[in-house]
């Protein structure tokens, strides 16, 4: 399970992870990737959530910001990277802590996040010197490139299986901009939009979702019909993006399909109902990301 993509506030996040304690997921990523202001928990509060998940036999990884632009944000990362079982690095600077055996990350596992842009097996192999346990594939990478990486390296390979995908990230907060306020003075107005703001084209097609400084696809990326193919090409884990609605149901459907208890065609029909703006998976098939290609 990936980190919560939107700004939910403390109470929503706490109750969400309480629910996830009972869900059939192996690994939970926690933290905010897109905005340093969303680091709203103290270390103790975050540790409490992590402990709850660990007691429920989940491995918990702290996801770092993808775009870090100053020392204050680096210090924010340093405060949390040691709290879980490992760290999902979304910017290269995090690797310094592991190379230098910084006590902050002693005995922690290192996972290379999707924002590191690992597009080929030689780049993936390079990361092996840092003992990277798992590499999350870039959003736009195709099945053949994933296969090429997976067959060449020993690290585990994870792909995004369900959720609204990151199509861009900026220093500018698009949520604040849409309300005519600056990012500096945002007062975390994103808390009022726990599912973001949907943008539609002039011909009324839902295209993007504004999520603070991030632009997400409005369509939900879905690889449920390709579970067997994912296994064949060497993918070892599938990432589900959290949502305020239906997350546990989505997890269950993926789990059943992975176990072979449910057919992919049947599963996608159910999942389609959970996708408010339609499904997509084009990137995985080497096509424009917004397209959906049935298996």
């Amino acid at each position: 399970m990936g980190p919560a993509p939107f700004s939910w506030g403390k109470e929503k996040i706490k109750s969400f992870y309480k629910e996830i304690e009972l869900a059939e997921v192996d690994n939970v990523f926690i933290g905010d990737i897109v905005c340093h202001k969303r680091h709203i928990f103290s270390s103790d509060e975050l540790k409490e959530i992590i402990n709850g998940l660990q007691n429920a036999e989940k491995k918990v990884f702290v996801s770092t910001l993808a775009l870090v632009t100053n020392n204050k944000e680096l210090e924010g990362i340093e405060e949390i990277i040691g709290l879980g079982d490992g760290v999902e690095a979304n910017m290269m600077g995090v690797f310094n802590y592991f190379r230098e055996k910084n006590p902050l990350v002693a005995d922690k596992k290192l996972i290379a996040g999707a924002f590191l842009n690992i597009y080929n097996w030689k780049a993936a192999e390079y990361l092996s010197k840092f003992n990277v346990e798992r590499i999350i594939m870039p959003f736009e990478i195709s099945d053949s490139s994933i296969a090429d990486i997976a067959k060449s390296i020993s690290s585990k390979i994870e792909v995004y299986g369900w959720g609204n995908l990151s199509t861009a990230l900026s220093w500018r907060c698009y949520t604040a901009r849409s309300l005519d306020i600056s990012r500096d003075e945002c007062k975390m107005v994103c808390l009022d939009y726990p599912e973001g703001m949907v943008l539609e084209t002039v011909d009324r097609q839902d295209l993007f979702i504004i999520n603070g400084p991030q632009i997400l696809s409005a369509k939900t990326h879905c690889l449920i019909e390709y579970i067997d193919k994912l296994k064949d090409i060497g993918v070892t884990s599938i990432r589900i993006e959290p949502s305020l609605k239906n997350t546990v149901e989505v997890i269950n459907i993926y789990r059943q399909t992975i176990k072979g208890e449910r057919d992919g065609k049947e599963a996608v029909e159910i999942l389609n109902k959970f996708a408010d703006h339609g499904l997509c998976n084009g990137w995985f098939l080497g096509k424009p990301g917004w397209e959906y290609v049935a298996a």
């Binding site: 199509t167 861009a168 080497g286």
Partner: peptide, 21 residues
């Protein structure tokens, strides 16, 4: 470019042609 370079997939999402690759 208003987005973080190397992490903008808007063109790729709509056209299938990626800025990065």
């Amino acid at each position: 470019c208003i987005n973080y370079e190397g992490r903008c997939f808007l063109s790729s999402y709509i056209t299938g042609e990626s800025t990065n690759t």
